[in-house]
Write a protein that binds this DNA or RNA. Structure first.
Length: 490
RNA sequence: GGUUCCUUGGCCGAGCGGUUAGGCACUGGUCUGCAAAACCAGGUACGGCGGUUCGAGUCCGCCAGGAACCUCCA
């Protein structure tokens, strides 16, 4: 199984067999959030995608070191020459220390990712805590002659790089095109050429986030933190680099250029990019202002939401699409996901009600094989889920008595459902908190249903229906069986 | 303008040359006092036009429409 995982590599634009540099170990670096705003649905996608990846790799017995950064410096707005740091800008706006802003949104990010059942990475380095490492990378690049100083700032020399290395191998861009297609250069530009990018930026007097360096008091450039921190925690070269497709260019391209000069090799061997979540076919994003925060999804407090959605509905919704496809948000799609997930969750709870027989009409081995094959095929979670729904049908049929299963197969079925649904897809199917874990409530409900049963025996349908309807209004779903009834909270 | 990619049934979404993806919704049946749930059954879609092939949503070309990136963005 381990030697059959195929991953789509953006570098080659092909699915490739995954082979780690060091057997049994995987080094994974994923671009995390810039903490200057509340986490929205778009942030959930890479978090869940790479959570699925680490869960699966871990299941395959790899020892995974998962590094996901927190960007709390850098990421200039507008043109580099007049850019303003996003965190600093927000801080000024809210009259806070920049670190207060970063801390606040970092906490929020952690909280909501936790609700989505996203496991913490092994290391979560902050850019602000790695300025020294970033300065070292700059020095290394300057020493090798691929960067130049200009007015206290340091820029990466893309033209020179392109003479000796393949600039654009990830995004397919050509330097000449970049030069000719860039808008008219700012007259005061400190850059020699349009595609050059800042490694170090001299701070304007009003700029509050600043560190000393041999060039100026300033701050590190956009793309540097990932080069510096991946090197520190994963080495000169590691296995997988992940992030959103919108980071492909220029961020990851620049990262490759920096690290290649610094270490003499491309930093990661497999580059994975998750696609965007869209709203009406358009990317959900901070700048477009069409994003819905996770808090809003969970409370329903947004004009575009018809209702609140549970975190697991959101997770299921995202996993129902392949990570490399765009996923269009709509209430209808989310409501469909909610119902589908509920059916899956219900079936999971019902496995315990199945009676084993001495013969199986179901083939568990094929089911298992199908599930693994789906995951091994570039993490095809929608196909995996399709197979899981086949199992749901099987479970329901077993309860309905139209199929049979042996004790051995039943245990295997139970194990596999838990493995794929809970452990690997990370879907929390527990319905405890939702089902009233109050013993007294159970007793009262049982009493009520017993009374109703007596009414039914007397053919007092009016009163029996009244009880059922009103319980329904309160939020209890009543399912009548042939002899007794069961209930659950909706 | 450049680079990359997408267009599948009522909706969401798989599919990588040849047999039903799956979910939601819908229709009929079974069960039920009636419902609900569940089970059984049902609808045959692939933007347009050419081409390759015994055979094409699936490969190639052209056209139409859309998206992402080329400024920060997951």
């Amino acid at each position: 199984m381990k030697d059959q995982l195929y991953i789509y590599n953006t570098l080659s634009r092909k699915k490739e067999l995954f082979k780690p540099l060091i057997p049994e170990r995987v080094g994974l670096y994923v671009c995390g959030p810039t903490v200057y705003g509340d986490p929205h649905l778009g942030h959930a996608r890479p978090a869940i995608t790479f959570d699925l990846l680490t869960r699966f790799l871990t299941h395959l017995d790899y020892k995974v070191r998962y590094v996901r950064n927190i960007t709390d410096v850098g990421h200039l707005e507008n043109d580099a020459d007049e850019g303003e740091d996003k965190i600093a800008k927000k801080a000024k706006l809210e009259e806070l220390e920049p670190m207060e802003v970063a801390q606040y949104y970092t906490n929020r990010y952690h909280h909501y990712m936790g609700m989505l059942n996203v496991k913490d990475p092994s290391i979560e380095p902050h850019a602000s805590g790695h300025v020294i490492e970033q300065l070292e990378v700059i020095k290394s690049i300057v020493d090798k002659g691929y960067a130049y100083e200009s007015n206290g700032s340091v820029y990466f020399d893309v033209k020179k790089y392109d003479e000796n290395f393949p600039y654009g191998i990830l995004s397919g861009r050509k330097v000449e095109d970049l030069i000719s297609n860039t808008r008219i250069l700012d007259g005061q530009s400190e850059k020699r050429s349009a595609p050059d990018f800042a490694l170090w930026k001299k701070a304007a007097p009003e700029h509050i986030m600043r560190w000393p360096s041999q060039w100026s008091e300033g701050f590190p450039g956009w793309h540097l933190e990932c080069s510096a921190m991946s090197k520190k925690y994963l080495g000169d070269q590691f296995d997988i680099h992940g992030g959103g497709m919108d980071l492909l260019f220029p961020h990851h391209e620049c990262e490759i250029a920096q690290s290649t000069v610094d270490n003499g090799k491309i930093p990661a061997r497999y580059w994975m990019h998750n696609n965007m979540i869209t709203v009406n076919g358009q990317k959900m994003g901070k700048s477009l202002g069409n994003f819905i925060t996770l808090e809003e999804f969970f409370t329903g407090n947004n004009k575009n939401l018809e209702q609140a959605y549970e975190p697991m509905t959101i997770r299921f919704f995202i996993l129902q699409a392949h990570y490399r496809s765009t996923l269009d948000f709509s209430n209808a799609a989310l409501q469909a996901a909610e119902k589908g997930f509920d059916r899956l969750r219900q079936a999971m709870a019902n496995i315990s009600k199945i009676n084993a027989l001495d013969k199986s009409s179901v083939d568990i081995a094929i089911f298992e094989q199908n599930c693994y094959a789906a995951l091994a095929d570039d993490l095809n979670s929608p196909v995996l889920i399709a197979h899981l729904f086949d199992a749901v049908k099987t479970i329901n049929s077993l309860i309905a008595g139209t199929q049979s299963i042996t004790q051995t197969d039943l245990m295997q079925l139970n194990r596999l459902m838990n493995l794929f649904v809970t452990d690997i897809l990370g879907l929390d199917v527990s319905i405890d908190q939702n089902n009233g874990n109050d013993d007294k409530l159970h007793e009262v409900m049982d009493l009520l249903l017993q009374v109703r049963n007596d009414l039914k025996d007397k053919k007092d349908w009016a009163t029996a229906d009244k009880i059922r309807n009103q319980l329904n209004d309160i939020g209890f779903e009543i399912k009548d069986g042939t002899t007794s009834a069961t209930w659950q909270l909706k």
